[in-house]
């Protein structure tokens, strides 16, 4: 009961999902960078945001009560990020389809997103704490 009010009803489960996805994406990017000179390597990408958007926005109906009909969307917290092998050869160099500049940019972006989500999570916990303290 208390857990439901304090944690499950907040954005924390979604933030945890996000942090997991960003950590996984970091791993994929690290692998792409490590293999930037491996012949025939196919870069890997993590699909998460698009799936999240689809899950949340399906039908545009909001459920504010358990009895409400769902819009056919999936519960966002049940989503798992997908590892996709990018076999697109249009942007190929002489070794593979890893563009090191793009990977470094993705790395920086993902780093910031992770930090943002982690800071947001920290903020939520601080909010919960101050609501317990009542000050």
């Amino acid at each position: 009961m208390l857990k439901e009010i304090l944690f499950d009803a907040t954005r924390l489960p979604l933030l945890a999902k996000g942090l997991d996805a960003y950590a996984l994406r970091h791993r994929a990017i690290s692998d792409n960078i490590a293999n930037s000179e491996t012949v025939g390597y196919n870069r890997r990408v993590i699909e998460f945001e698009e799936r999240l958007r689809l899950a949340k926005g399906a039908g545009g109906l909001q459920r504010t009560h358990e009895g409400h009909l769902g819009s056919g969307g999936v519960d966002p917290t049940s989503l798992d990020p997908h590892v996709v092998t990018d076999a697109d050869k249009s942007d190929i160099n002489d070794l593979n389809n890893v563009d090191i500049d793009r990977e470094m940019a993705d790395l920086a972006e993902n780093h910031l997103q992770f930090n943002f989500a982690s800071r947001l999570a920290k903020l939520y916990f601080e909010l919960i704490q101050s609501s317990i303290r009542g000050a």
Binding site: Y22, A23, H26, I29, S30, I33, A34, S36, I100, E103, M104, L107, A108, N110, H111, F114, N115, S118
Partner: peptide
């Protein structure tokens, strides 16, 4: 250097 950057990012995260 690129791999070092990736490690540093992971450390910071």
């Amino acid at each position: 250097e690129a791999n070092v950057s990736a490690i540093n990012a992971a450390k910071d995260m």
